[in-house]
Amino acid sequence: MVPRNIFSEEHEQFRDSVRRFIATEITPYHRQWEKDGKVSRDVWLKAGAAGFLCSNVPEEFGGVGADFKYNAIFTEELGRAGATGPGFSVHSDMAATYLTNFGSQEQKRKWLPKMASGEVIAAIGLTEPGAGSDLKAISTMAVRDGDDYVINGQKVYISNGQLCDIVILACKTDREAGAKGMTFIIVESDRPGFERGRNLEKLGLKAQDTSELFFSNVRVPVSNRIGEEGQGFSIAMHNLAEERLSIAVSAVGACEGILEYTVAYTKERKVFGQTVADFQNTRFKIAELTAHVQAARVFVDRCIELAVEKKLDSTVAAMAKMIAGELQCKVADECLQFYGGYGYMMEYQIAHAYLDARIRRIAGGSSEVMREIISRKVFA
């Protein structure tokens, strides 16, 4: 395999710690969390105490000031282990980045230390029933009233929605201004008028809480606004490349994990007096998948380097997200076939991997949207 040279010895020591944490604090409880529809808050506190949350947040705001590679390692290893329950990536790679890059000093001091410790769980409120990938179409409205905003609207498919203490909420502050009318506002979950809807029953990602959120005359101070009024769309676009890279990182990690335990299974399962691995079809198909995953790994590693250098653009991130996300679906589907009927049984990890993979072609921008972004650059 192509050697990975983007990580230092310190990064690999961090990876070892992450693997131990997942093995002891996540994997043994994950099936129960799937039944519960959410993870325990305790695992958030343990992840925070271990230094795994918001690791690239500056030390003055409670993080360790590490580079994005540490975030990528945590996300990658969660993907490899099939640990899809904890919404750590949304919290650390997305919500915290909004505050780090665009929040006021007061907002950073108030929220980032508690986010890094796991005391405060964050969600991002973008998607609405009538607005998915098209952020300009959101209708949740924040109306200025003196020193407050009064917010009314609805969000859906919000990861961490049942557990979150704050929501980085996308609102319209000017209904007629299109993209320039969008603003991000921090909304605490204990404010009057904020209501959590049902914990949505999903095809996969059963342990990750995903919710509807409702806002009825929710009053928040203007000081909760992130950046300037009307700056929300540009803030979202600025952060979107890294967000999509995080999805790609998780997807490639998941592919590698699926291949690893599938190879082990085919060496043990016997059909017609020989192991499944003895059949040429098995060896050739696994070889093909391994080559595709290796190619994706090299590309995604380069994207991680670009992200650290602050040179990752939206088109390259869209390529990484599309390639890795679709590959995860392909790997899960074709590997499940080697299990025969057992692959259809939920007691086997491959069945969970198959269900969890399907969201990769939708969340974070659908594959069709990724193709549109890429094509605009190609035909410019």
Score class of each variant (00 low, 15 high):
Asn101Pro: 02
Tyr354Leu: 06
Phe88Ser: 07
Cys54Gln: 04
Phe68Met: 03
Thr282Pro: 00
Glu59His: 05
Ala251Asn: 15
Ala254Trp: 02
Ala287Gly: 14
Lys270Trp: 10
Val316Ser: 09
Gly132Leu: 15
Asn71Leu: 10
Ala177Met: 12
Thr183Tyr: 03
Ala23Pro: 06
Arg109Thr: 12
Lys180Asp: 12
Lys172Thr: 12
Lys285Asn: 12
Trp33Ser: 01
Phe215Tyr: 12
His238Met: 04
Leu336Asn: 11
Asp147Asn: 15
Ser55Asp: 15
Gly161Thr: 04
Val43Thr: 08
Gly85Arg: 00
Glu372Gln: 15
Ser216Ile: 11
Glu372Ile: 13
Ile286Thr: 01
Glu347Pro: 05
Gln13Met: 07
Phe68Gln: 05
Gly103Ser: 05
Phe61Val: 01
Asn56Pro: 06
Ser375Lys: 14
Glu334Thr: 06
Glu260Cys: 11
Glu34Thr: 04
Ala131Ser: 13
Tyr339Ile: 05
Val293Trp: 03
Ile359Ser: 06
Gly130Ser: 11
Asp190Leu: 03
Ala50Val: 09
Asp278Ile: 02
Pro86Ile: 09
Asn56Lys: 11
Asp278Leu: 02
Cys255Ser: 08
Met346Gly: 05
Asp145Tyr: 01
Gly85Thr: 04
Ala287Val: 04
Phe299Ile: 05
Met1Asn: 09
Phe279Pro: 00
Leu213Asn: 02
Asp333Cys: 12
Ile350Gly: 02
Asp147Ile: 07
Phe379Ser: 14
Asn101Glu: 13
Leu126Gln: 01
Val271Gln: 08
Phe379Asn: 08
Pro221Trp: 05
Gly365Ile: 04
Gly364Met: 03
Ala353Arg: 14
Ile359Phe: 12
Val43Glu: 00
Glu12Gly: 09
Val220Lys: 03
Lys270Asp: 07
Arg360Trp: 14
Gly146Lys: 02
Ala380Cys: 11
Gly125Ser: 11
Arg302Asp: 15
Ile73Tyr: 03
Ser117Gly: 14
Glu368Phe: 12
Glu288Cys: 06
Asp174Ala: 07
Thr27Asp: 14
Asp16Ala: 13
Arg20Ser: 15
Met94Leu: 06
Ala23Gln: 12
Arg358Leu: 11
Ile73Pro: 01
Ser133Trp: 10
Lys35Leu: 08
Thr262Arg: 00
Glu201His: 11
Ala277Ser: 07
Lys136Ile: 10
Ser17Glu: 13
Pro221Phe: 13
Lys46Val: 04
Phe214Tyr: 15
Val143Ile: 15
Lys136Asp: 11
Phe379Gly: 14
Gly230Leu: 01
Gly227Cys: 12
Asp301Cys: 08
Gly230Val: 00
Met237Val: 08
Val18Asn: 04
Phe102Thr: 00
Thr84Trp: 13
Ala320Arg: 03
Val64Thr: 13
Lys136Arg: 13
Asp145Pro: 04
Leu78Lys: 02
Gly132Asn: 14
Glu9Cys: 05
Asn101Met: 12
Thr266Glu: 01
Glu334His: 06
Gly62Cys: 04
Tyr344Val: 07
Asp209Arg: 04
Gly181Leu: 06
Gly193Ala: 09
Asn281Arg: 12
Glu195Phe: 08
Glu188Gln: 14
Gln208Lys: 07
Glu288Thr: 11
Val293Asn: 02
Val167Asp: 01
Ala351Ile: 09
His30Thr: 10
Lys172Glu: 13
Asn71Cys: 14
Phe88Thr: 08
Leu99Glu: 01
Gly130His: 15
Thr24Ile: 09
Phe338Ser: 00
Ser246Glu: 03
Lys46Met: 03
Ala277Glu: 10
Glu212Ser: 11
Gly65Asn: 01
Ala122Arg: 00
Gly341Ser: 09
Ala324Thr: 02
Asp209Met: 10
Arg297Asp: 06
